[in-house]
């Protein structure tokens, strides 16, 4: 049984890149979306074990998504990773304060993400 990971990122190239990295880890099924709205729609339809989200997105921002997830009893246990760019310290700090588990600074190598995924998803 593979676990589902949701990736929320509006840039297509980043999204596919990250999705490809996550997909490369055995035992993970990836669901991707380009918008926070879509993410809100997907949440009740899937059982996600982990969410990876960008911060700056056009509809709702990633912080709002984190807040939504963390405030919702149905999802609050789901770990969230935020993807940030260097220099946006305030956004990153807020994300962590809202309950994001980890942050990744773009661009990053597959190895770092894979290690984090394995740790949080308790994969062998």
């Amino acid at each position: 049984m593979r676990v589902k990971v949701l990736i929320v990122e509006d840039s297509k190239a980043s999204r596919e890149y990250i999705a490809a990295m996550v997909e490369a880890v055995e035992g993970i099924e990836v669901v991707v979306t380009s918008s926070g709205f879509e993410a809100l729609k997907l949440l009740p339809r899937h059982r996600f074990e982990l969410i990876i989200t960008d911060i700056n997105m056009p509809d709702i921002n990633g912080l709002e998504l984190i807040n939504f997830v963390k405030k919702n009893p149905n999802y609050r246990e789901v770990p969230l990773f935020i993807i940030t760019t260097e220099g946006r310290d305030q956004d990153r700090e807020r994300g962590l304060a809202l309950g994001a588990a980890e942050y990744l600074v773009k661009p990053f190598l597959p190895g770092s993400l894979e290690a984090l995924l394995r740790r949080y998803l308790k994969l062998p």
Binding site: I55, N56, N61, L63, E64, I66, N67, R88, Q90, D91, R94, A97, L98
Partner: peptide, 8 residues
Amino acid sequence: RSVFTEYE
């Protein structure tokens, strides 16, 4: 306020 991005 805590969920606003710096820009917002």
